[in-house]
Simulated scan of single mutants.
Amino acid sequence: MMFRIDPTSDEPLFEQLVARVRIGVAKGELAHGERLPGARELAQALEVNVHTVLKAYQVLRDEGLVDLRRGRGAIVTGRAQAELSAVERAIDDLIRAAKAAHLSPDATATLVKEAMR
Rank of each mutant, 00 (worst) to 15 (best):
L46V: 01
A100E: 12
D62H: 12
I91Q: 00
R96F: 00
D93V: 11
G73R: 04
A100I: 00
R72S: 12
T52S: 10
D62M: 09
L60K: 05
G38Q: 03
E83N: 15
G78K: 03
Y57H: 11
A100V: 02
E63V: 01
A97T: 05
T52K: 05
T77Y: 03
H51F: 12
L46M: 02
R40K: 13
D67G: 10
L46W: 03
L46C: 01
L46G: 01
A74S: 06
R72I: 10
I75D: 00
G78N: 03
Q81Y: 04
Q44Y: 10
T52V: 15
V76L: 04
A39I: 04
A97H: 03
A101G: 01
I75W: 01
S85I: 14
R89Y: 11
Y57M: 11
A56H: 04
Q81D: 11
A90M: 08
Q81N: 04
N49F: 13
V76E: 07
A43L: 10
R70W: 14
E47K: 15
V66L: 01
A101R: 14
P37M: 01
T77A: 13
R89W: 09
R61W: 10
R79F: 12
L68S: 08
V76Y: 03
Q58G: 05
R96A: 09
G38P: 02
V87W: 11
A98T: 00
A90E: 12
T52Y: 05
L84V: 09
G64Q: 03
V50M: 06
D93M: 09
R69Q: 13
V76F: 04
A39S: 14
I75Q: 08
K99S: 05
T52E: 10
V87Y: 09
V48W: 04
R72H: 14
S85M: 12
D62W: 07
A74C: 07
L65M: 04
Y57I: 09
D92W: 06
V66K: 02
G64Y: 02
I91C: 00
V53I: 11
A98I: 01
D93H: 13
D62P: 04
L65C: 00
L42P: 07
